[in-house]
């Protein structure tokens, strides 16, 4: 498998008037094309910072980020970032919301529009495309947010605790939804979370981070049948074994 993303000796220091914070110190991560990697770690260990660096929103103090062979210096359509909250624009219809990224990079044309329309159709949002975000449930809104991210055909998806704003029931359903969308679109994804079971249910590989400054403490390869959904994984005995393993690493 070919390497799609590489973080090479990344460290980052935040400066503020009162103090300086070493958020990441000499972080090395490498991710292959098509992988679904989960990054778990205690809150404040620098997970969001890692994603912001991969996306090119902040520059690392030292080190390089390479995506598909190119050094990242600023945000590019190769990387799609999905936040904790859906951040849909209330004044735009669902379909306009999903076209936002294409508009920004000036790639809105009949072909890309058709692709987005197809995504909306495929994932059960077609009849809502002229609706406004307030008319949708939390789970549907998160699905729209994912389609908005997919619209500009990124090679890597960055998901920053995308389910933490949802209630438990919805969360389980949306995890299945999002996981199947990412699988069927054959995307590489990095999921950041502090929810151990979410990481085990969704990913191929878990990176456990130490507390600040975040370093990769342990990498756990998950061995589940490819066809299982997150919900089905949760029912297997293996699931609990992995849970114990990650739990021990975290505490």
């Amino acid at each position: 498998m070919d390497k799609l993303l590489e973080l090479d000796g990344i460290s980052l220091t935040y400066h503020s008037k009162k103090s300086e914070t070493l958020a990441l110190n000499d972080l090395n991560i490498s991710i292959n094309s098509g992988e679904f990697v989960a990054i778990v770690g205690p809150s404040g260990c620098g997970k969001t910072t890692i994603l912001s660096i991969i996306c090119g929103l902040i520059k690392p103090t030292t080190g390089n980020v390479i995506v598909a062979g190119e050094k990242v210096t600023k945000p590019s359509p190769k990387v799609g970032y999905m936040f904790q909250r859906d951040n849909l624009f209330e004044w735009l219809t669902i379909s306009k919301n999903t076209l936002l990224g294409l508009e920004i990079i000036k790639k809105k044309n009949p072909k890309t529009k058709a692709y987005v329309k197809e995504l909306l159709e495929k994932y059960g949002l077609k009849e809502f495309s002229t609706h406004y975000p307030t008319e949708l449930s939390g789970g549907m809104r998160q699905r729209v947010a994912l389609i908005r991210t997919l619209a500009s055909s990124p090679e890597i998806l960055l998901l920053d605790e995308p389910f933490s704003a949802l209630d438990y029931q919805t969360r389980l359903v949306v995890q299945d939804d999002i996981s199947s969308i990412i699988k069927s679109e054959k995307k590489t994804a990095i999921l950041v979370t502090h929810d151990i079971s979410e990481a085990i249910a969704m990913s191929d590989r878990i990176m456990v981070l130490s507390s600040r400054p975040g370093k990769v403490k342990k990498i756990i390869n998950l061995d589940f049948d490819k066809s299982l959904s997150p919900f089905e994984r949760r029912k297997l005995p293996k699931f609990n074994e992995y849970f114990d393993l990650v739990w021990r690493e975290l505490s």
Partner: peptide, 19 residues
């Protein structure tokens, strides 16, 4: 966070203003 979203899509200042 909405501003960050647009920035992550590669938006410039003017686009952030108008969009």
């Amino acid at each position: 966070e909405k501003i960050m979203l647009l920035k992550s899509m590669g938006a410039n200042k003017l686009q952030i203003l108008f969009k």
